[in-house]
């Protein structure tokens, strides 16, 4: 699990870039911005999951309640 999350995020980043570029060329600019936003939201959700996992382990470890 460790390092392939980083690859996933890089892949999502490149994918959204490509999709946004294609949508811009077709002429649908507003859908391109929405696609970029969707990519950013997905990546942020994954980041938030990792952060919450880190906080849980630190709470148990350092007895911070």
């Amino acid at each position: 699990m460790d390092y392939n999350i980083i690859f996933k995020i890089a892949a999502i980043g490149i994918l959204t870039a490509v999709v946004a570029q294609i949508l811009k060329n077709i002429g649908k600019d507003e859908i391109a911005t929405i696609a970029t936003l969707a990519g950013v939201v997905v990546v942020l959700l994954m980041a938030v999951n990792m952060i919450s996992e880190l906080f849980e382990t630190i709470k148990q470890l350092f007895l911070i309640y």
Partner: peptide, 22 residues
């Protein structure tokens, strides 16, 4: 990723740091 999509620069660093800490 910074060159392709600047928004994704921070989440990658965040997750890389978290993985190392975990």
């Amino acid at each position: 990723i910074k060159n392709i999509k600047p928004e994704f620069h921070i989440p990658i660093l965040l997750i890389g740091g978290t993985i190392i800490l975990l």
